[in-house]
Write a protein that binds this DNA or RNA. Structure first.
Lengths: 339, 339
DNA sequence: GCCAAAAGTGTAAGCGCTTACAATTTTGTC
DNA sequence: GACAAAATTGTAAGCGCTTACACTTTTGGC
């Protein structure tokens, strides 16, 4: 590295004619700095393009000026969008964004948490995206002493932003019911071993309940969040002999797969079967998939904002808040009245 | 931040009965440390659970231990995949990955380059993804003194990894020609004002040349890299009265749009028209789009590796290298023989 | 105007590590 | 063995910042 001579606090001190100490305080907007000094320092700093060294600040007991975004994977559209939105907010607040992808791998994940205490020295805060932590991991997170905010997590002792999954699933199901369908199949997430315990499944069930309908076990099938999984699940449903007139898939990708399987089995959508997803994947508009949209970028941005606030006044130990953003039914071409 | 009394290198030195300096060297496996010392230090360190302070190492060593990945946007599948692959490589080499998205906005981009000299103090290297820099920006990049590597850039004075766009386009076109099509339309990228100057267009043209065919201007249309743009472009082609038997779209997303437009105009694919894209978008398999695949993750990983090498032996001023990775024709359901 | 209190500023001691360079020990040769 | 060269180890000076604490200036009440 050709180390171009770094602009240090010393340079700012000299240019502003004040001591290093005063500059340091002025820069961090600490009390006991006169108006004049503030201005002089600000001018000098901006003229020199000065930015504190993260390593030095950190070592001396201060802050690093960067926060990490931790995602289970960085390749899915959901995370990519949330990350970009968060990065924008963080950048505007002067933080660098360090990206950590757990790559959907247990080993990577384990290593991250084992190394967390050490990693914590390199950032001021953590923005967790849909990481469902086990007790040990929760312990590590609490112990690392970082400010934390999250997207899509439940019952966590820090600020969280998400959607009401149960309600969103209810909206989707309600739409199907409103179209006169009552033989409803559901492709439910298998991320937890018990498929029927997920919020989205509960929303599905609640809608049925309200119409005095019951969930038929033969019409419930597990599906991961991928096209292939959705395809397999739908195929299983069909070969099982199930003949629903409408299908609710827990996410759009699974719905895409369902669409494929349906086509392969000669069933026409929406003529024979209606299909609705949940998420509003970027391709859903193109494919005409009816769905319930969730504001992905907004969630990332909102959570980033909460984290920044927390970072600024870290003193005030306020209650962790949980914000649920609105979801919206988007009717396209894969759902229609039962005839 | 609760500062738990940290185990420092001093503690290890005392326990192992050696000097701090020797411990430091032993820990980093530098030469000139005796076998004995190595072992003693290793034992002491593990007994104490010692982990070096990142901040201190960095401050003293003059490196930041992080590199920035700069992408025009972080939301497209291409960048998401390249970023994740690069992040993995960088992480394995001990670097944190700072994400910078230019958000496809001129203002963000300008700010980044104006601020580059300053930003350069916070990272050791830059990984640029498909940023086509103007002369001023190039100047800034050279001046910032950082190690640089890139993906998908041309004629740059640093290591680059990409694909042979011209060849890839040639492969796609050649496939169409091999199927007996000779009325070929092309949806060409409009990122540069002159559509016919892009490498992908040149590849298209070369394939035609080889078959002694000429490019008919009426069958050339500009299209951005989005479904909508592709749709618009294809629609324009059709309303123009053009009746190609096959279409080459410069990227899969444009091809998706072409598919839509074709369907809207009652043209059946591949019965009436064959369509081929380029990239192998994650949805292409699902949609059955024939295409030429480029290894996205590999490009990101490769470039990251080059950057890491450069970062390690920064002394050796070696020639910038340019690596072209292989692309591969993937025949699916949108192309067939002309009949 | 005087003086104590308040406000602003500076001095200097680290934070935990790396690294010239100096000091010491080991090795190898005659 | 003696001695130079090579290998190993230690000393000490920072890296750029924060922060007690000491010091200087301003403020305001009488």
């Amino acid at each position: 590295m050709v180390r171009t001579d770094r602009v240090t606090i010393q340079d700012v001190a000299v240019l502003s004619g004040l001591s290093i100490c005063t500059v340091s305080r002025a820069l961090r907007k600490l009390p006991n700095v006169s108006e004049k000094a503030q201005v002089r320092v600000a001018e000098a700093a901006s003229k020199l393009g000065y930015k504190a060294s993260a390593a030095a600040s950190r070592l001396a007991g201060g802050v690093t000026g960067s926060v990490a975004i931790v995602a289970p994977t960085a390749t899915s559209w959901f995370f990519a969008q949330a990350v970009e939105a968060a990065e924008e907010v963080l950048g505007d607040s002067g933080y660098d964004t360090v990206l950590i992808s757990l790559r959907n791998k247990a080993s990577v994940r384990r290593q991250f948490f084992e190394n967390l205490e050490n990693f914590a020295q390199r950032v001021d805060g953590l923005l967790l995206l849909n990481i469902d932590v086990d007790p040990d991991e929760m312990e590590a997170l609490k112990a690392c002493g970082l400010a934390i905010a999250s997207v899509g997590m439940r019952h966590v002792p820090w600020d969280n932003v998400g959607i009401d999954d149960e309600h969103a699933a209810w909206q989707a199901t309600q739409h199907l019911l409103g179209l006169g369908h009552w033989d409803l199949a559901v492709l439910s997430s298998n991320e937890h071993s018990v498929v029927t315990e997920t919020p989205r499944f509960r929303g599905f069930k609640r809608a049925l309940d309200e119409h005095h309908l019951t969930v038929h076990p033969d019409l419930v099938v597990a599906a991961g969040p991928s096209i292939d999984d959705g395809r397999r699940a739908m195929a299983e449903l069909i070969t099982r002999g199930a003949r629903p007139t409408a299908v609710f898939a827990h996410c759009d990708e699974a719905a895409f797969g369902a669409l494929t399987a349906l086509r392969e089995y000669g069933l026409s959508v929406p003529k024979n079967v209606s299909v609705i997803g949940l998420d509003d994947h970027p391709m859903s508009g193109f494919l005409g998939l009816s769905t319930v949209a969730q504001p992905v970028a907004d969630q990332g941005a909102f959570a980033a904002n909460l984290l920044c606030e927390r970072l600024l006044n870290n003193e005030s130990p306020h209650q962790p808040s949980n914000h649920l953003l609105d979801t919206k039914l988007i009717e396209r071409k894969t759902t229609r009245h039962k005839r």
